[in-house]
Design a protein around this nucleic acid. Structure first.
Length: 357
DNA sequence: AATCCGGGGAG
DNA sequence: CTCCCAGGATT
């Protein structure tokens, strides 16, 4: 038996039972593929259920406010996926009468859909024999064929694409692509792959030469950027004695675009209390910091992203009437309940939760 | 072709 | 801690 046949046999006996596999609705496949980009199945599962429940079809998704889509995505990361998905739904409704594309070429033109996702949808839903190269697949291939080039290079990806083109079956490309993903996550795992029980080990160049640990090769990545965020929980009692505080929406090309956070003073370096109070930020926000922070409590939190390390300090400050009015001009005033409905970074969510303890 | 964009789980 | 996950857009 050849690789393809062995793999499909393995798949028929070991495939994972996943909700989107019980459906032949391209919308479900599409949503699942976007959610699972750079995201483990276990992490994405609950989001998938909530998402298709809230937005059962492309029309519901297109009609939804962008803020609601982003809020549902909260905690999943890579939020451009949510923004693009919403744009894509509107794109499909306005340009395609709400009919989802039925081929690779048209899917690749949809916002947020790249070569992998277009290949996955086209092969699973429409039987187009196009390789869907994700991290799992590239790991399997580099081991199977002992590919020495680093996988985080586009030239290597092209090579692996051509290799896969050789073994993808014309009759069931969807099963093949999904089989590769399951096989990669269950057998040909990043660490401690199950070579002893692998049905492909006899043809695996890495296994045969006892060099599985060398693959996939990766070019070292550059060090992460460090950032220092100083968040201010400016609170005040409203007329009904309910606590309200100020938040703002992040704009520009930075992390957490369009999500809500507390008023933020960012510095390039760690900063002491005195320099913090003398920062031009206060003048820019027209706040008199002279008597601020004197006995406010500070909460330190470290937040790790793939490419950034954020050291966050949270300052709780009760503001007087004048400061409140100043802040109100450039910030949104909310209570805890209202803030709950807004999309916010995991760091902010973590702070709010911790605060209530 | 390189860089940026999140968050969480495994080891 | 480090690495990786059903990658894509931007530059």
């Amino acid at each position: 038996m050849d690789i393809t046949e062995l793999l499909l046999n393995w798949y028929s006996e070991n495939k994972r039972l996943l909700p989107w596999r019980e459906s032949d609705n391209p919308y479900h496949i599409w949503i699942s593929e976007i959610i699972l980009q750079q995201t483990r199945v276990e992490q994405g599962l609950a989001y998938y259920h909530r998402f298709v429940d809230a937005f059962p079809d492309v029309f519901a998704l297109a009609a939804a406010p962008a803020e609601k889509v982003l809020r549902l995505w909260q905690g999943l990361g890579y939020y451009s996926r949510a923004r693009n998905l919403h744009q894509a739904a509107n794109q499909i409704v306005s340009d395609h009468n709400g009919k989802l594309p039925d081929n690779y070429k048209d899917w690749i033109n949809i916002k947020g859909v790249g070569s992998y996702t277009a290949a996955a949808i086209a092969s699973i839903c429409f039987n187009e024999p196009i390789p869907a190269l994700d991290g799992n697949v590239m790991r399997i291939l580099t081991r199977l064929f002992a590919v020495d080039q680093p996988v985080n290079k586009s030239a290597t990806k092209k090579l692996l694409y051509d290799l896969t083109m050789e073994i993808i079956p014309q009759d069931k490309p969807g099963d093949f692509n999904q089989a590769m993903m399951d096989f990669g996550s269950m057998v040909c795992k990043p660490a401690r792959p199950l070579c002893a029980s692998c049905v492909l080990s006899h043809t695996c160049h890495a296994f045969q030469s006892d060099t599985v640990y060398k693959y996939p090769r990766k070019e070292p990545k550059k060090p992460v950027r460090e950032r220092f965020f100083h968040y201010f929980f400016f609170f005040y009692p409203a007329r009904d004695n309910e606590m309200r505080f100020f938040v703002q929406k992040r704009t520009g090309n930075d992390i957490w675009k369009n999500m809500y956070e507390l008023p933020l003073l960012e510095t390039k370096e760690p900063i002491n209390r005195e320099n913090l109070l003398n920062d031009p930020w206060w003048k820019a926000n027209r706040i008199d910091s002279t008597n601020l922070l004197l006995n406010g409590q500070v909460l330190e939190m470290k937040h790790l992203l793939t490419h950034q390390r954020i050291f966050a300090s949270f300052y709780q400050i009760r503001v007087d009437g004048v400061t409140k009015n100043r802040l109100a001009k450039q910030h949104l005033s909310v209570n805890l309940h209202e803030f709950e409905t807004l999309a916010k970074p995991a760091l902010i969510e973590r702070y709010i939760k911790q605060m209530n303890v």
